[in-house]
């Protein structure tokens, strides 16, 4: 083996695995989405037919798809800004000069983000229980009537968003905290001498200083939130009245419950396009609002 090819020996195994288990399946998904691959085709490949864009057309005329799309967009559009705002607020608190035990708080806040979604969803299902749940108990102290969080189609998505904000709070917080640490302290000192208040300092020093990281964190969170699945699978099973059925949940049902792999592949590509378009939009927005 000459030195020239040594790099391939190091990179080869990983690249081979990626090619076989990622690149080939992605290309195959594109092909699959223009066929009627279903249970009959699994039985015998001779039953497979090319259907062109029919899967996509069917999808666009399927009310369930629009419901899943709407639910997912609802989760992303409400959940991502809430998540970012909560994490940024927390990061500013921990970063504060007067905060004590920073290491402890950082760890305490981060803990939920490493937990298994299924396991913590089970806890939240109990917290959100209509009759015995702690959240309704606390609300009753404020004279608010019990809310059927997971059984009322109006409240099921807000409940899942609340859970997601709790779960992802610490991860984004730690990344934003690192960004806050890169802002020179003398900027704040100068602003203070000029008589700028806390809010003015936040708007004119903190926000511009972490803009890049905030965009990056937003992108990551958005990508994650578009892949909503385990939360509704455990907490609501997509219900009530399909109010928490996400695009990925639809893909799972189509693909692995009904074995319509052709149609499910079309769902996969629509999800991909959706994520890609949103990322591009967000990227452009971050660039245009650069100071």
């Amino acid at each position: 083996m000459t030195r020239r090819w040594l790099g391939w020996l190091y990179a080869g195994p990983a690249l081979l695995v990626l090619a076989i288990f990622f690149v080939v399946p992605v290309l195959a998904a594109l092909l699959l989405s223009v066929t009627d691959y279903d249970l009959y085709a699994i039985a015998s490949i001779h039953n497979l037919r090319f259907v062109g864009l029919r899967n996509y057309a069917d999808l666009l005329s399927n009310p369930l798809f629009w419901q899943a799309l709407w639910n997912t967009v609802y989760f992303v559009v409400v959940g991502v800004p809430l998540s970012l705002a909560a994490s940024l607020g927390g990061a500013v608190l921990v970063h504060s000069k007067v905060a004590r035990f920073k290491g402890f708080f950082r760890t305490a806040y981060f803990a939920p983000s490493i937990t298994t979604v299924v396991a913590v969803a089970v806890i939240w299902r109990y917290l959100l229980h209509t009759r015995y749940g702690l959240i309704n108990y606390l609300l009753s102290m404020l004279h608010i009537a019990p809310i059927d969080w997971l059984g009322d189609p109006h409240w099921s998505m807000p409940a899942i968003i609340l859970f997601a904000v709790w779960k992802n709070f610490g991860y984004n917080l730690v990344i934003l905290l690192a960004a806050l640490g890169t802002i020179p302290a003398d900027l704040y000192e100068a602003a203070e001498l000029d008589g700028a208040g806390a809010f003015a300092q936040f708007r004119h020093i903190t926000l511009p200083g972490i803009r890049g990281t905030l965009g990056f964190v937003g992108l990551l969170t958005m990508a994650g939130y578009f892949q909503l699945f385990a939360e509704p699978y455990v907490m609501t099973q997509g219900g009530p009245a399909q109010s928490t059925l996400s695009v990925l949940y639809l893909l799972y049902d189509e693909g692995f419950k009904w074995w319509n792999l052709g149609r499910a592949s079309a769902v996969a590509f629509v999800l991909f396009l959706l994520m890609y378009a949103t990322a591009l939009l967000q990227h452009r927005w971050t660039r245009e609002h650069r100071p």
């Binding site: 990179a11 690249l15 990626l18 076989i20 288990f21 990622f22 690149v23 080939v24 399946p25 992605v26 195959a28 998904a29 699959l32 990508a223 578009f226 892949q227 990925l248 893909l251 693909g255 692995f256 792999l261 499910a264 592949s265 996969a268 590509f269 999800l271 991909f272 994520m275 890609y276 990322a279």
Partner: peptide, 23 residues
């Protein structure tokens, strides 16, 4: 290869999963 990998980074894993199952 590095450029191709970087471009593939945007593809979510779920896109690959249906054919991966068949594979």
């Amino acid at each position: 290869v590095a450029k191709a990998l970087l471009a593939a980074l945007v593809i979510p894993a779920q896109v690959a999963m249906l054919p991966l199952f068949l594979e």
